[in-house]
């Protein structure tokens, strides 16, 4: 499953040692909105988490897996035709046996829509 080019397009990516910032643009024509919800397009929360995972994968240069989510708060409902320009910020908090702990936010126009803390893994069966 790759949402890039379908659900969003990546406009820019910048990273330093322990933090990264990505600018994405949501694609309102994505087929996901046919079903979520018919006539009322709303970004699925799971797809927004998937964007974070994909950004982290882009940063790391290899597939990263969500092993655990300590807490992911969806602070507002994201809609693709209103809040299309997204900023994703990711911080690596520390390493674990199989990957690392990260925190991340997803925001648009200065408003935070999602806050994430969890463990990303390098491998997952």
């Amino acid at each position: 499953m790759s949402l890039e080019g379908k659900y969003y397009q990546m406009c820019s990516a910048h990273w330093e040692a322990d933090s990264a910032t990505f600018h994405l643009r949501l694609l309102p024509q994505c087929e996901v909105y046919h079903g979520h919800f018919p006539g009322r397009p709303v970004c699925p929360g799971a797809c927004n988490i998937e964007m974070l995972r994909a950004c982290f994968t882009h940063w790391m240069g290899r597939r990263q897996y969500i092993g655990a989510i300590k807490q992911c708060r969806m602070l507002a409902v994201l809609t693709p035709d209103i809040d299309a320009d997204i900023e994703v910020r990711i911080n690596v908090l520390g390493e674990t046996a199989g990957g690392c702990q990260i925190s991340a936010t997803l925001s648009a126009a200065g408003k935070t829509y999602l806050e994430f803390k969890g463990e990303m893994l390098r491998e997952l069966a």
Binding site: I49, Y65, G67, A68, K70, Q71, M74, V77, L124, A125
Partner: peptide, 16 residues
């Protein structure tokens, strides 16, 4: 009714 995810906690994925 229409529902939205407000928060995900204690998620663990053991395999896909």
């Amino acid at each position: 009714p229409v529902g939205y995810i407000g928060e995900v906690k204690k998620f663990r994925c053991f395999r896909r």
